[in-house]
Design a protein around this nucleic acid. Sequence first.
DNA 1: ACGCGTCTCCCCCAAAAGTCGGAGTTGCGC
DNA 2: GCGCAACTCCGACTTTTGGGGGAGACGCGT
Lengths: 224, 224
Amino acid sequence: MLRVLVVDDQALVRRGFAMVLGNESDIEVVAEAGDGLEAIDAARAHKPDVILMDIRMPELDGLESTARILAEVGDETRIIILTTFDPDEYIYRALRAGASGFVLKDIPPEALVAAVRTVAAGGAMLDPTITRRLIARFAGDLGTEQDYGERLERLTAREREVLEAIADGKSNLEIADALFIGPATVKSHVSSVLSKLGLRDRAQAVVFAYECGLAKVGARDVGF
Amino acid sequence: MLRVLVVDDQALVRRGFAMVLGNESDIEVVAEAGDGLEAIDAARAHKPDVILMDIRMPELDGLESTARILAEVGDETRIIILTTFDPDEYIYRALRAGASGFVLKDIPPEALVAAVRTVAAGGAMLDPTITRRLIARFAGDLGTEQDYGERLERLTAREREVLEAIADGKSNLEIADALFIGPATVKSHVSSVLSKLGLRDRAQAVVFAYECGLAKVGARDVGF
DNA sequence: ACGCGTCTCCCCCAAAAGTCGGAGTTGCGC
DNA sequence: GCGCAACTCCGACTTTTGGGGGAGACGCGT
């Protein structure tokens, strides 16, 4: 039996989802919550298998609640984020917060039920448009390497090293130390890099490095 | 009416999928193919809306076929990759090849039908385990959101705007123009941002913006 | 031997960036 | 009204950056 917690600030919406899920023989709605704080309490008390979490709520929004519940109650609880609106602004935060699902509220009832079962089984369920975006992003990690790769190939090996160092947030002096060369040499290389890539300054070089895949998000600590 | 092409080297499997899909009133199986080359011919001839493509086939495997079909016939044709085995080794190549879906063959019939409709509508459908893996990869396998999120929240709204502009490769003067404020003000904000985030210069700010998700790879052109 | 590209380094110079301290304005909450 | 935070600006200062030359050394291919 899958034990589910439904969280939404609108009682009607809450009841609707609870009703749909409750009709399934293998699903039981163990609690409902009207805001983020209630959600955390309920999660703590009932330790549900799956939480349906609205994103826009008073007190504490769904994303913050998600993060706290996963941190506190444990990640054997799966959370599906629900939203009415365009997910663009929230989706990234939701995924980072640890959500297992992200669906629009206009999802067909059967699909919602399927989503609950899917995430309970350890899978993840995203709205198709979001999935497509994730794929594009994933494929883009290497897909665009070809495009910008051309520009990258105009650089010499040493220049690429310097560019990497720039993308690491290093100053010219730090780069000099790291590569065992003089500061003047670094400046030469930096100038070549900027000129060859058509960039203006090292900040743009950092952007370029990320966009072309030379630098990858998550591949470093931002400790500085 | 959705026009579908089914590609699999095993005739029985092929017929099975065709049968399931053909029973739907809004889906028509316009052709079947037994290997990659046949698939390309059939795709060229029928220009189907959706192709169900087995991954293991003689002559030309499903991934190579996918890439060629998308390049040749055009990307208004959506392709779903089917596999019996653990998708780990193929998924990466499949997504890069441009597939809109990737599902295991033991998918329930209704789910397969839903997948066809989903990708035809421009969405994407992945096996839940794959979706989870994509999310994990995207999120960097780490709950880093909180770390950087906290640091981001120390910034005022205006400072975040400035940081975004920095991450866009803009100079102080360009930022001033973009935000309709004086250059001196920009410098103030930049100083605040750097100091609050513990960064040294704008290049590190760009790195930070990418790492914390404020700036997104692929969300811009590196035209400068 | 010669040219070529790369790596190394130098000087000078101008522009941009960043720091420091100060200061006026608004708006918001107590 | 008062404190406070945020947004806005200023001026002067130091540091960093980037450009424009140039130059020596090395290796590589013709």
